[in-house]
């Protein structure tokens, strides 16, 4: 892992992966300290917080793609929508 040039890192993508990494580690620590049992929210599934996080991230990716494909507004709006959606999902999903 000496030469990372081939991976062509950029600051935005590095930030992105660090954020994802931090979220995952935080989730893991939280679940290690206080495991939450699966429960049923507004989603038609019984989910654990980990499941909800996955659903949230995956749907956020689609929100971003949809935003890019159908509108010409800044991508930051999509990010905002995604963050709100993620919080709603984690809390009530």
């Amino acid at each position: 892992m000496i030469n990372l040039e081939w991976m062509a890192w950029t600051a935005p993508t590095a930030t992105f992966f660090i954020t994802i990494g931090v979220i995952l580690s935080a989730m893991t620590t939280w679940q290690l300290i206080a495991p939450s049992p699966p429960r049923r929210g507004f989603l038609p599934l019984t989910t654990t917080p980990g499941d909800r996080l996955f659903i949230g991230l995956l749907s956020s990716a689609y929100v971003h793609l949809g935003w890019l494909g159908f509108t010409d507004f800044s991508i930051w709006f999509a990010l905002g929508i995604s963050v709100i959606w993620l919080i709603v999902l984690m809390r009530w999903g």
Binding site: E5, W6, M7, A8, W9, P12, T13, F17, L65, L68
Partner: peptide, 25 residues
């Protein structure tokens, strides 16, 4: 991860690349 990195840049050759944001998408 590499794919994600590539997807936001225009790569001409080794060491020659420009950040282009979401343009490719």
């Amino acid at each position: 991860m590499t794919v994600v990195n590539y997807s936001v840049q225009d790569i001409f050759g080794p060491g020659q690349r420009v950040f282009v944001g979401t343009e490719w998408f």
